[in-house]
Design a protein around this nucleic acid. Sequence first.
DNA 1: GTCGAATCAAACTGAACAGTACGGTTTTAT
DNA 2: ATAAAACCGTACTGTTCAGTTTGATTCGAC
Lengths: 211, 211
Amino acid sequence: MEASKKTRESPRSAAKRAQIHQGATRVFLAEGFAGATTDAIAKAAGVSKQTLYVYYRSKERLMVDVLTSLLSRLNHDHAVLQDERPVDSLPALRTTLIELASEVLETVSGGEYLALSRVIIADSPRVPEIGRLWAQTITGGVRLRVAELLERAREAGIVVVDDVEAATRLLTGGLLTYILPDGIVAVNGPVAAPERERVERIVDLFLRATT
Amino acid sequence: MEASKKTRESPRSAAKRAQIHQGATRVFLAEGFAGATTDAIAKAAGVSKQTLYVYYRSKERLMVDVLTSLLSRLNHDHAVLQDERPVDSLPALRTTLIELASEVLETVSGGEYLALSRVIIADSPRVPEIGRLWAQTITGGVRLRVAELLERAREAGIVVVDDVEAATRLLTGGLLTYILPDGIVAVNGPVAAPERERVERIVDLFLRATT
DNA sequence: GTCGAATCAAACTGAACAGTACGGTTTTAT
DNA sequence: ATAAAACCGTACTGTTCAGTTTGATTCGAC
């Protein structure tokens, strides 16, 4: 038996809260902030509107919570952004970069990431901190990661780069063009991620500039 | 029915229409579609709401008109996208690419382009043709242009590129990272365009991969 | 000056929607 | 079994806003 006292705080049951969160995620991604009505969210979550307002004080709070979780989840899904990877030989660096690129492009070309980005960009004037978080999350994270890999490879004498920042921009930007200017407005489902071979060609081209 | 009489067409005076158009542009860029009220637009244009609805049948029509004009204007401002440029020597190619990059980055980092992009991205689910137009307008246009320049340079034996598309993506993407993932959510005015020297470094790095 | 077209200001209509109130039903703990 | 807590559905409130109506005023041609 638990001796926990029933403190009357906002969350009564974590499961219910998750259920609302989940329904709201679907509706916000599909409709954006303005387009998502609280009635629709309640219905999608299988919950009465009343209950929704017990768990979340306002529609805006709910959305910030939903977007933040989504960003955090998308970020943590990327082992390649966290794990140690070998860069101690040119083939190793090449493999690492290709893996990183493929994995990230996979995520970023999914309908979920694109829809999320659309919502965040639209509302960034109103909720600027979410905008900043978004910019840091995948694209920014990848840039940091690539910069770090290149730096290590340079110290190991594998590559020659006098301007790590420029090199990083070149590679990450080159990869993301497949998604970002185009996919963001391609509304009909996810956009096609470039095939592995194409990614390899870009990485190889990039490596020609650094050796 | 008599086809005689005077057909009451939408525009009565081109000047008034332009006046409304101009006011609406300001308000839409600042507030987005949802945030812009027709009252605010009428006020900004110095026109009564009544008159506004004489010239435009709905708020949506007005916005499509405004966005389309903006895109077209931004596009035609770029001489470097239209004019013939020399690529018959490596220094000439280099200069051409740097000029192209600088000019485009100048436009694209301006608050107007970023605000416009935000609005279009937000509403692309509702008005997909504007989204497509946007993707083709500057970023897409630059990509076509760079591809063409590289192709010509390759035929002239100036550079070695076995995959023009990959090379194009690498360069344009590398340049646009300065703006696109970051600037789009940086709401406080325009974002800093990279200085000339930085642009030169990216172009030089890119050229190392193609020679 | 006169007449009609264009414009203006302000009030109105109807719909959408965030958030609340309320009365009834289910769940959970004891 | 019982009561409290959580939940449900529906209806209500107040507000915002696109688009319309009204009725008055200005402008331009003749």
